[in-house]
């Protein structure tokens, strides 16, 4: 029997306060109208107004979105292929190296990944810009996608694929008609993860990009290295708001689906 004690309640309260207080303060102070960033000077949305005027930020945001959209989509395709190879590929030459290359980027310090990609791009004389950031982000996020998708594939009942073959599917159409629809939630989750990782990345983008492309995290970083900036607070608030709405919506949708499924299953047993 589990007991929820006062100690538990206290540690939950303190723990979540620690997790959420800094973000909450940041959000509150983004509406600070005063001159001094640390002193409350009345409610105002002026920093949001200035942010919208700031073309450099808007450009960086646009670059970031483009990079994230392309890199996460390519990473999802490559990562799903890699997951399929890992789980269903059987034995082939260099399998150990392959799985090593899938897992290594997950634990590789970003500075090393970034440095090595930069040296590659310079070594082969590849101009750095949006394209190199996309290549760099695709490479590390495909590994995350492949981990997410392969954990779903491992628990996938293989006889479903065999049944599709048995009923006349070619291997390719079995994947398209049976495997893909069933693992779709994991593939979508992988895409979302890749997209967020790309939006979030500072270090690798910093190495992989050239003067022609600046992403939003790079812009934020150079602004906040110097100190607290009310404009950045406003920008952060917008980003946090988008993520919060997105995550809560996603979890409500999946919770509703789970409840419906449970109800269906109970009804099935009853009849």
């Amino acid at each position: 029997m589990r007991r929820f004690t006062w100690f538990n309640a206290t540690s939950l309260t303190l723990g979540f306060a620690f997790l959420y207080l800094p973000i909450t303060l940041l959000v509150i102070y983004s509406f600070n109208g005063g001159r001094n960033v640390a002193v409350w000077g009345g409610f105002s949305t002026k920093w949001y107004g200035e942010l919208v005027q700031n073309e450099a930020f808007l450009d960086a945001a646009w670059v970031t979105l483009k990079v994230a959209a392309f890199s996460s989509t390519i990473a999802t395709v490559l990562g799903t292929m890699a997951a399929y190879v890992l789980v269903r590929g059987g034995r082939f030459h260099g399998r150990t190296l392959f799985s090593g290359m899938i897992y290594a980027p997950l634990v590789m310090p970003e500075v090393i990944t970034g440095l090595s990609l930069l040296l590659l791009f310079i070594g082969i004389g590849f101009d750095r810009g949006i394209l190199t950031i996309i290549l760099a982000h695709t490479t590390f996020s495909m590994c995350y996608v492949s981990v997410v998708v392969s954990s779903r594939l491992v628990s996938f009942d293989r006889s479903l694929e065999e049944a599709a073959l048995d009923l006349g599917c070619s291997p390719l159409s079995a994947f398209r008609l049976v495997t893909l629809p069933i693992i779709a939630p994991a593939v979508i989750a992988g895409w979302l993860l890749a997209f967020t990782l790309s939006l979030d990345d500072l270090v690798i983008a910093n190495f992989a990009s050239g003067p022609s492309a600046t992403t939003l995290p790079m812009k934020i970083w150079s602004a906040v290295r110097l100190g607290v900036s009310p404009e950045i607070n406003a920008l952060s608030t917008i980003l946090i708001g988008i993520v919060t709405v997105g995550v809560i919506t996603a979890s409500l949708v999946s919770k509703r689906a789970a409840v419906k499924r449970q109800r269906d299953e109970q009804a099935a047993v009853a009849n």
């Binding site: 973000i23 940041l26 979030d200 906040v224 952060s236 993520v243 997105g246 995550v247």
Partner: peptide, 17 residues
Amino acid sequence: LPFWTSFLIRVYSWKGI
């Protein structure tokens, strides 16, 4: 939830504190 929020922003939020 914080994991989905920008890492950079979360670190930055401590600067003000």
